[in-house]
């Protein structure tokens, strides 16, 4: 591979990583508060449509972006309602959310298939884009990619440097203790789920506003599930989520370029790569956790466990 091709590959990897990173961070917030949300795939699908339709109707990509985020928060609010208020099983509720979200996105979106939007376009950041290597890879992207650069820092700051983040983490570890300390674990969990949903929604919005500029059904294409896997890979740490997302964007971009270079490997095998990699990555991080004996401390202790009412 020539240096130009490698730069192009890395730039494509960054683009591919952006929606996955948004969703991974969103899921991380939710899980840190103790709520497993398997609905990410559905949330991304629906918010991609919400972002598209608002951008299409108003002509404003920024409004579309917020619409995507709010649609994500709203749908995750449903998950919070089912799990927090009605004490439903988090795994099944998440799956239901995915089925519902993907279906709703297809249902509402079918009449608009093939309609284009302006969305976000690429623009080069002055000065920075002329850096060797880093410039073309990082700073000739669209506005949402620049936004995603801030997201891990923001999530890290929220979780580790604010009292709200402390409360969230406490709720995810030991809700009873959090309640004893005068916090409201129910409200904190709802916040974590919905704020996470907002981020997942941004990931969905990225797909329709920045990635394709074109609406179609099935836009999320399994990215939401990859995000759920990456949270585990990242040991619930925003920094490692960046690495995981880049790895995925990279593999996807790599397999397409391998084909463009004229490989003889059948395409079914190449398309398997991202999914096989997810399993391998999980195995790898699990093995590492086992070896270092850090596995159990990484996952929030009360993850997936609903808060039972007294009496």
């Amino acid at each position: 591979m020539s240096p130009e091709l490698i730069i192009a590959l890395l730039a494509a990897a960054v683009q591919g990583a952006a929606p996955i990173l948004f969703a991974t961070l969103g899921e991380m917030l939710s899980e840190k508060a103790g709520v497993l949300n398997l609905g990410v795939e559905g949330v991304m699908a629906l918010s991609a449509f919400a972002a598209f339709i608002v951008c299409h109707l108003t002509g404003s990509a920024v409004l579309g972006l917020f619409a995507g985020g709010f649609a994500g928060a709203l749908l995750c609010g449903l998950h919070a309602l089912v799990c927090q208020v009605f004490l439903g099983n988090q795994v099944v509720s998440g799956l239901a959310l995915t089925i519902f979200g993907v279906g709703l996105s297809d249902f509402l979106g079918t009449p608009y298939v093939g309609v284009g939007t302006e969305g976000f376009r690429q623009f080069a950041v002055p000065l920075l884009s002329h850096l060797p290597m880093l410039g073309p890879v990082l700073f000739r992207q669209d506005a949402m990619v620049y936004l995603v650069y801030c997201a891990p820092v923001a999530v890290w700051f929220l979780l580790n440097r604010t009292s709200l983040g402390l409360g969230l983490r406490a709720t995810g570890e030991m809700p009873a203790a959090a309640a004893a300390a005068g916090l409201n674990p129910q409200r904190l969990r709802a916040f974590g789920v919905m704020a996470g949903g907002f981020l997942c929604g941004l990931g969905g919005a990225y797909l329709s506003l920045a990635h394709t500029h074109l609406w179609s059904t099935g836009l999320s294409g399994g990215r939401g599930w990859v995000a759920v896997a990456l949270v585990i890979f990242a040991f619930w740490r925003p920094g490692r989520a960046v690495i995981g997302a880049l790895l995925f964007g990279g593999v996807m971009a790599f397999q397409l370029r391998l084909q463009a270079e004229g490989t003889n490997v059948p395409s079914s095998l190449l398309l398997m790569l991202p999914y096989a990699l997810t399993v391998i990555v999980l195995v790898f991080s699990a093995a590492r956790a086992k070896y270092l004996k850090t596995g159990h401390s990484a996952a929030p202790a009360a993850l997936g466990v609903n808060i039972e009412p007294e009496g």
Binding site: E4, L5, A8, L9, A12, G16, V113, L207, H211, T212, L214, S216, T217, G218, L219, G221, M252, A253, L256, R257, Q259, A260, E261, G262, S267, S268, L271
Partner: peptide, 27 residues
């Protein structure tokens, strides 16, 4: 002529990425 298979009939995201990968090899 260089060919990239997407195994999709309608996936704008993947199909666009496939086209970019071809542009990257100088198409």
């Amino acid at each position: 002529v260089r060919v990239v298979w997407t195994k999709t009939w309608f996936d704008p995201a993947l199909e666009k990425d496939a086209a970019i990968s071809l542009l990257d090899v100088n198409a």
